[in-house]
C-alpha cells in the first residue's frame, strides 16, 4: 500500500501549498478586517475596549445581538467623509500620475544600462528605504519651508522677491507623496522593462516608426502590466496616506487618514473610525476587482 500513501502525501502537499497563502491572508488580512468590521457595527463606550460588545446577556438570560448601522448612516449623512475620500482619491491619483511620469524614464534608463550598472542603480532607488520615512518627510520640510533650501536658493539668485508658499499646502503633499512612493513605481516598471525584448523596439524603428511612435505603440503596451502593477502599488497605500499630509499638508488638507485619526483619537469613537476604514476598503476593493477582471480577460487569447 506504499503507492497509496505516496498518493496521500502528494495530496497533503498540494493542500498545504494552497492552504499556506490562504492562512496567511486569513490571519493577516481577513481576520483583522473582520474585527474592524465588527467594531464598526458597535457603538462607542467609555470602557476598555472603548466600544459596546455586540453580543450581551439580557437579564432574562437571553443572548442579545446588537448591531448599530448608525455609523454607516453617519458617514453618508455628513459630507465631510465623502469630501475626505474624494480628496484622498484625488491625491492618490495625482501621485500615481507623477510617479509614473518620473518613474518610467527612470526605470527605462536603468533597464537600458549595461548589466553591471543596473544593480547599483537599483540600489540607489531603494537606498532611501534605509532611512526612516518620517525623517525623510521631515527633510522635505527643511527643503520647502519659507527659509528652506529652495526658497533660499531662489531668493539668493534673485528669481523671487519673497519666499514661495510651497509648504503646508497640497503642493507639498503631492511632492512628499511622489517622493515617498516613487520606488514603488520604479521597481515593478523596471522588472517589466528589464525583461522586455529590445529587438521589438529595433523592429519598430526599422519599420519606419519614429522614436515617439515606437514608445507609444510598442514600449508602452509592452510595459503596460508593469504600469498597472506600479500604479496599484502606489495608489492603494497613497489613498490611506497619513504621514505626508500630516507633516507637509496645510490646515485645509483633508484626508481620509486624518479623518480616521480624528475619529480614533479626538472623538475616541472606535466604531466610527472602523466604519470609515471599512468604507475605505470597500472603496478600494471595488475598482481593484474591476481592474483584475479586466486584466485576466485581456490576458486570455
Amino acid at each position: 500500500m506504499r503507492g497509496l500513501s505516496e498518493e496521500r502525501k502528494r495530496a497533503l502537499g498540494r493542500f498545504l501549498v494552497i492552504a499556506i497563502p490562504f492562512l496567511w491572508l486569513g490571519a493577516l488580512f481577513l481576520a483583522p478586517f473582520l474585527i474592524v468590521a465588527k467594531i464598526s457595527l458597535s457603538s462607542a463606550a467609555v470602557a476598555i475596549p472603548p466600544y459596546e460588545p455586540l453580543i450581551s446577556w439580557a437579564d432574562d438570560g437571553a443572548l442579545v445581538l446588537t448591531l448599530h448601522v448608525g455609523n454607516y448612516k453617519l458617514i453618508f449623512s455628513d459630507p465631510i467623509y465623502l469630501i475626505a475620500y474624494a480628496s484622498s482619491l484625488r491625491n492618490a491619483a495625482v501621485t500615481v500620475i507623477f510617479t509614473l511620469l518620473l518613474g518610467f524614464p527612470l526605470a527605462y534608463f536603468i533597464a537600458t544600462r549595461d548589466q553591471k550598472w543596473r544593480a547599483p542603480l537599483l540600489l540607489l532607488v531603494m537606498l532611501p528605504f534605509w532611512t526612516s520615512f518620517l525623517i525623510r518627510v521631515y527633510a522635505w520640510i527643511g527643503i520647502l519651508k519659507p527659509n528652506g533650501v529652495i526658497n533660499g536658493a531662489l531668493l539668493w539668485l534673485g528669481v523671487i522677491e519673497k519666499p514661495l508658499v510651497i509648504l503646508n499646502n497640497n503642493f507639498a503633499v503631492i511632492v512628499g507623496m511622489v517622493y515617498g512612493y516613487l520606488p514603488f513605481m520604479v521597481l515593478p516598471l523596471y522588472a517589466h522593462l528589464e525583461k522586455m525584448d529590445w529587438s521589438l523596439l529595433e523592429a519598430a524603428s526599422d519599420l519606419g516608426a519614429k522614436p515617439f511612435r515606437v514608445f507609444r505603440k510598442v514600449t508602452l503596451p509592452l510595459a503596460a502590466p508593469g504600469i498597472v502593477a506600479g500604479s496599484l502599488l502606489v495608489f492603494i497605500p497613497a489613498v490611506g496616506e497619513y504621514i505626508v499630509p500630516a507633516l507637509l499638508g496645510g490646515p485645509d488638507t483633508l484626508t481620509i487618514g486624518a479623518t480616521l485619526w480624528n475619529e480614533f483619537f479626538s472623538n475616541r469613537d472606535w466604531p466610527v473610525a472602523s466604519t470609515v476604514a471599512v468604507a475605505l476598503v470597500a472603496l478600494l476593493v471595488g475598482p481593484l476587482l474591476a481592474l483584475q477582471h479586466h486584466r485576466t480577460k485581456g490576458a486570455r487569447p
Binding site: I80, P251, D252
Partner: peptide, 10 residues
C-alpha cells in the same frame, strides 16, 4: 467636527 470645518472649510 467644527474644528475640521474651521480648518478645511468643509
Amino acid at each position: 467636527r467644527l474644528w475640521t470645518e474651521i480648518k478645511t472649510g468643509h
